[in-house]
Lab assay of single mutants.
Amino acid sequence: DRMTSQEAACFPDIISGPQQTQKVFLFIRNRTLQLWLDNPKIQLTFEATLQQLEAPYNSDTVLVHRVHSYLERHGLINF
């Protein structure tokens, strides 16, 4: 699994950072998509996403918020 070119453009700090940071991003992105796909008729809020993310992935709330906002803005969740 890899970041898309659009994700890389929107998250230059992640793509240029350590490999582990990219893996954390990918986990948060994929898990958020999975959470929404589990029940697409219900809006997936940032707060609900954060509550359902497993530790330690829920510890970087800023990154979780950025990923959630990106997915929502680009019509990948909550459409």
Rank of each mutant, 00 (worst) to 15 (best):
H65L: 08
F46D: 04
R73M: 10
T61F: 08
K23C: 08
F27V: 15
Q34K: 15
L37S: 14
D38C: 11
T21I: 11
Q34F: 03
V64L: 04
T61P: 13
V24K: 06
Y70S: 03
T21M: 12
V64P: 00
E72Y: 03
Y57A: 06
E72T: 09
R29K: 10
M3N: 03
P12Y: 05
G75E: 15
T45L: 02
H65M: 09
K23F: 09
L50N: 04
A55N: 05
L35Y: 06
A8W: 07
L71Q: 00
D13M: 01
A8F: 06
S59E: 10
R31P: 01
M3G: 03
L53W: 02
T4G: 06
E54W: 09
I77D: 00
E54P: 11
L76C: 08
R66V: 00
Q20R: 12
L63G: 01
I14S: 01
T61K: 10
L37R: 13
T32M: 14
E7Q: 02
G17C: 07
Y70P: 01
T45S: 11
L44H: 02
N58R: 12
D38M: 12
E72L: 04
Q52T: 12
T45A: 04
Q52I: 10
Q34N: 05
Q20M: 11
H68Y: 11
P40M: 08
Q43I: 11
N58D: 07
S59H: 15
H65F: 12
P12S: 09
P56V: 03
L26Y: 09
P18K: 11
A9C: 05
L71H: 01
L26Q: 09
E54C: 10
D38N: 13
L35E: 04
C10I: 08
P56F: 03
M3K: 00
V24Q: 13
L63A: 04
W36K: 02
L71V: 01
S69A: 12
I14W: 00
A9P: 03
R29V: 04
F25G: 01
Q51C: 10
T45E: 07
Q43E: 14
H68G: 02
D60S: 07
P18A: 10
C10V: 09
L71M: 08
L63Y: 03
P40E: 06
E54Q: 15
Y57F: 09
Q22F: 08
L53H: 02
H68C: 02
T49R: 00
Q52V: 09
L50W: 05
A8E: 15
Q19L: 14
L37I: 08
D1P: 04
T4Q: 05
S16V: 07
L44K: 00
H74F: 14
Y57M: 07
H65V: 03
T32G: 03
H65R: 12
A8Y: 06
W36V: 02
A55R: 10
A48L: 09
I15A: 11
V64E: 01
N39E: 07
V64S: 02
L76N: 06
V67T: 04
N58V: 05
V64A: 10
H65G: 14
N78P: 00
F79T: 08
T4P: 03
R31H: 11
N78Y: 01
F79S: 15
N78H: 00
N78V: 00
L44V: 10
L37E: 13
F11D: 02
T21V: 14
I28S: 01
G17M: 07
Q6R: 11
K41G: 13
T32Q: 02
P40R: 07
I15T: 13
L44T: 03
M3Q: 01
Q43S: 13
D13P: 01
I15M: 15
L37N: 15
P18V: 08
Q43V: 13
P40S: 07
S69W: 07
Q22W: 06
G75P: 00
E72K: 04
Q20I: 15
P56C: 04
E54R: 11
L44E: 00
L44W: 04
P56D: 05
F25K: 02
E7G: 00
F25L: 04
Q19N: 15
D1K: 15
A9K: 09
D13K: 04
N30T: 07
H68T: 00
T49M: 08
A8Q: 14
P12G: 07
F27H: 09
L37M: 14
